[in-house]
Design a protein around this nucleic acid. Structure first.
Lengths: 199, 199
DNA sequence: TTGTGTATATTCACTGGTTGGTATACATAT
DNA sequence: ATATGTATACCAACCAGTGAATATACACAA
């Protein structure tokens, strides 16, 4: 049975994702991941050098799909910029109401591994959030926002804040409150743009 | 040596605080806590029924001091409401620049124990954040803000968002961005109040 | 003052189970 | 025959929690 290889690696990551996200990194043993993937620990260690590598791979696999989802929610929403950003929070609220939802895997991992600042998984999480911020900044800049970086970071703060608060209180309505705050902040900036354009 | 008792319990909590906050909950063993407190694990288990209880006690001990600090920063700041709230974020940024800073203990614990929704430590964390929200809501209400709860929650979202983002990126400047956003949102609400008062 | 009982506080030694990681051998495809 | 992939069995360390014994302080009685 030596053939699978690439699919095997993928299967391991899928098993790791489900377990790490649902139970936490340190709570889940390598044996458990291997068992869920339907193979032995030794095989897993053939495909990944260490548990740390596996954790990093788990987050790396979530990077693009996650960003794509945000872009999709943004693109599909009708209306102006504030409405399109607010749509992200609204869709997120819907996700967060699912019982299996347990916050943002990137943030939870960085919280759990906060004592290992250089951990590869934390780097991947930081890069992920930076990509999201960059996407927002570019989008805002295209709309003529005066300080697109500031606004993008404010959105990021509201987004990650809602991840944290909703996880703690198990009350997804905070996500809609965050969306409303995001809308308000964007409208302020848009008003500033209009004012400058009118001179 | 049977006398200490209360001081002993306190010493255990202090040892647990340092270890749990710096290394994480599941990373730290009960033996380590006991060793740091200068006693045997068995003695620790005389004062606390389980590790879960100890974790809860660790957070409970941080509840009041933490809130008191926020109130102090708010009270000591000169200026109007927006400035006083912004002062909280400014002071937090200063704390976050210390190398030993590792985010909000309440949020990190809730992230690490997200797979145990009923865990006593999570309840304490939720209560802590609720107290903070209540304090802000009361403060805003006394200033005549029209929707003090909404504004308080927006502040909470920015605060916890900055905890999460700063922990991930190790860049405390996000905290000042959050303070600026907080100021903006408060000023909007104050403008609304003035408008209504002018009728 | 001295002896004694008792609740409180603490220690030593232990258990049953888990953990990340590995040495070695074996199977398959080319 | 060689590189790739998988399995069995194992290790040394660690971990939450416990059983049994013991030490101390203090209340009370003689």
């Amino acid at each position: 049975m030596p053939r699978p290889s690439e699919p095997t690696r993928e299967r391991i990551i899928q098993a790791a994702s489900a377990l790490f996200y649902n139970e936490g990194i340190r709570r889940v043993s390598v044996d458990e991941v291997a068992a869920r993937a339907g193979l032995t620990k030794r095989t897993l260690y053939y495909h990944f050098r260490s548990k740390d590598d596996l954790v990093a791979a788990y987050l790396a696999a979530r990077d693009q799909p996650n960003l794509a989802l945000f872009r999709k929610w943004f693109a599909e929403a009708d209306g102006g910029l504030p409405t399109k950003v607010e749509a992200i929070f609204r869709n997120l609220a819907r996700s967060a109401r699912h019982p299996k939802w347990k916050g943002c895997g990137f943030l939870r991992t960085s919280a759990e591994l906060a004592n290992m600042p250089g951990h590869p998984a934390i780097k991947i999480g930081a890069a992920h959030k930076k990509k999201f911020e960059d996407w927002l900044r570019t989008t805002f800049a295209a709309e003529g926002i005066a300080d697109p970086l500031k606004l993008a970071r404010q959105m990021l703060l509201l987004l990650d804040g809602s991840f944290a608060v909703v996880l703690l209180h198990r009350d997804a309505s905070y996500m809609e409150t965050a969306g409303e705050a995001a809308r308000t902040l964007i409208e302020i900036e848009l008003a500033g743009r209009r004012k400058r354009a009118g001179r």
